[in-house]
Design a protein around this nucleic acid. Structure first.
Lengths: 215, 215
DNA sequence: GCGCTGCTTGACCATTTGGTCAAAATGAAC
DNA sequence: GTTCATTTTGACCAAATGGTCAAGCAGCGC
């Protein structure tokens, strides 16, 4: 994604102290607003207000609403896919998947906005990150699918379609972030309690890992 | 939900032929538009145009955008929860869950808009159906959780938290509708092919059912 | 202090869009 | 065909919102 990191545009202008601070503040606020309201529902004004800034001032740093949105998305994407990219072909399959699933559940608990941001983007047809999905993500998934397929060949996992396994893991883990309102409504106060996510992790791991253990 | 079915308001006015036709056309169009654009993104104009109607004419049948949205949501809810409500305590657990999961995957394939509509509503905090979630859905889930717990007690299923099992099933099955764009981008043309959903069903069933089979 | 560059903003504009209304068209009953 | 209720619409309004701009302000090197 992007050229280097979060530069405004071309020609690596050094990006002053105040710029760095303000751009970060904007992106942080934008993540929350976009995650809870979606792209259409979010307003520049709300993002601006949330970081104590006027609308024109915010537009001094980003040229449009779409621009902010895109950069938040790209920035969050790396972080979000980190644990997936880190899946190690040489580790023990079940342990490695346990690690990955746990990591994703922790992310869903700690940063649900990131998950919601993507969910919303994809739900509406991925207008902004469609290209990324078809190239980078596709390549990455293809690679990891190969790893899983190898594990299956080696008899270290039950025979399972790697792609659907990946989708199942994504679906279950992200569900806890994206649908937290529903979960909270259904199970009530327990959902907020400290041990809740550990309990969720245990259940999800139990289902998926036992579902794919060699037999 | 709602008083009887889809009456405009109070006092069961018989609802003329033309009303019946038009209301249905509007609700059908609205489902699609709301599902793809979300509540904020949808416009009355688009819904109206899509069923060959003028905006004021549409507002003759429904008093506001919110009103249409709410009725589409309520109408689809019943249909969506049907298979869940139909889970039979007396059937064989593994077979019954296989039936349910399969039914949900079929729905995700045939009517992805319904799934997307809910996903969007919940993602944005369930402003409209929050009450429903906390009462009816909560009660229903509680009831079915009891069934699963009983199955576990009887040794017919591996020990698993009923709620998390339900969430896992919802997450995986609905993922195929809500994130279809991502799936298509990642695995390419295969996603459209006829056998794809059967393959998905097989993989999901394999993981979940083997994950909960008594051992 | 001076001047210059970079940062900030009030005022403003254009577009979109939910919703209203009075008047016209249509259909049904007789 | 006349009459009345139902249905349809063009024209319109008000609010929200993305985005612009010229002018003001602030920091900083000298």
């Amino acid at each position: 994604m992007a050229s280097t990191k979060t530069r405004p545009a071309k020609q690596a202008k050094p990006l002053s102290r105040i710029q760095e601070v303000n751009r970060k503040a904007i992106l942080d606020a934008a993540l929350e607003v976009f995650a809870t309201s979606g792209f259409r529902g979010a307003t520049i004004d709300e993002i601006a207000t949330r970081c104590g800034m006027s609308k024109p001032n915010l537009l001094y740093y980003f040229k449009s609403k779409r621009d902010i949105y895109q950069q938040v998305l790209e920035q969050t994407l790396e972080e979000w896919l980190g644990p997936f990219a880190a899946i190690d072909p040489n580790a023990d399959p079940v342990e490695e998947l346990r690690r990955y699933i746990t990591a994703k559940l922790v992310m869903s608990e700690k940063r649900p906005e990131a998950s919601k941001l993507f969910a919303n983007e994809i739900l509406h047809g991925a207008p902004v990150i469609h290209g990324f999905l078809e190239t980078h993500l596709r390549q990455l998934v293809h690679e990891k699918a190969g790893v899983i397929r190898q594990w299956v060949s080696d008899g270290k996992l039950a025979p399972i379609d790697p792609y659907h396994l990946i989708f199942t893991i994504w679906a279950t883990t992200q569900h806890y972030a994206d649908f937290d309102v529903q979960i909270r409504a259904v199970i009530g106060s327990q959902a907020g309690k400290p041990g809740f996510y550990e309990q969720a992790a245990q259940a999800v791991l139990s289902i998926i890992l036992n579902g794919i253990r060699p037999r």
